[in-house]
Amino acid sequence: MASLKELRGRITGVKSTRKITNAMKMVAASKLRRAQSQAEAARPYAEAMGRMMAELAAASRGADASSLPTLLGGTGKDQVHLVVVLTSDRGLAGGFNANIVRSARQLIRTLRDEGRTVRLLPVGRKGADILAKEYPDLVVERVAGTEGRDVGFDKAEYVGKKIVAMLEAGEIDRCTLIYNRFVNAMTQIAIQLPLVPLSVAENDNAAPAEAAQYEFEPDEATLLANLLPRNLQVQIFSALLESAAGEQGARMTAMDNASRNASKAIDRLSQKYNRTRQANITNELIEIISGAEAV
């Protein structure tokens, strides 16, 4: 049986762990609020962009696939897939990163079974560490995540430009983004979003009359060519924001569980401590009494 001193030490240890997890939970909660309001603020741009894309895609629908920009129509091949994996830079967020990596692993396996070549572009340190260990030959570049700061559009811009550059150099044919979609603090869903070729939301029933009359300056093709890379960046940006909110949500839940576990452990240990103390006293009493009787 553990001595009283040992038990006291363990109780203090678990108590300080609980203090840390509790503090982390509070921090995650306030960061989550921030991340959510940031995601909220970015929504109007993404929505307006989506509307414009839909109009433009409708206007250039008549054109055959080969004359469309590569970002919209694809390269015409389906051989090399780039998988962009969004994870966090820090751990202690429950299954947040493991979920993403599992989803990435699955996609890689499916693509390989189909005989395709896979390249990886991990964004965020945690995913990069795991993927670089498992698939060292596939990783094109490691991009640092947000490093605990707010998500900036420059990060999305960088990743977007990188994808476009690889596409134009003929290094990749398709691109898929894997990220955690924020549902609520408890739930994040790993999503596989195809970025290239782009799937444009069809809005056939949403005011088609106006769509027909749109004028474009400069012409549709130029506008589309300029709008597409921007749209790609916007999609990556909103994924980054979702992922940031999801990370904080996951961490909050994980730390809440950890604090609760710590409380339970403390209860258990205190009970054990009290029992041991009581047993020791009883022992001493028995010794004294039996000593007195022997005299």
Binding site: Y214, E217, P218
Partner: peptide, 19 residues
């Protein structure tokens, strides 16, 4: 400020998309 010159957006103008 449009790519090819300034453009005024006024009520009841024809729909236009510009860079």
């Amino acid at each position: 400020p449009g790519m090819e010159g300034d453009i005024a957006a006024m009520p009841d103008r024809a729909p236009l998309m510009l860079q």
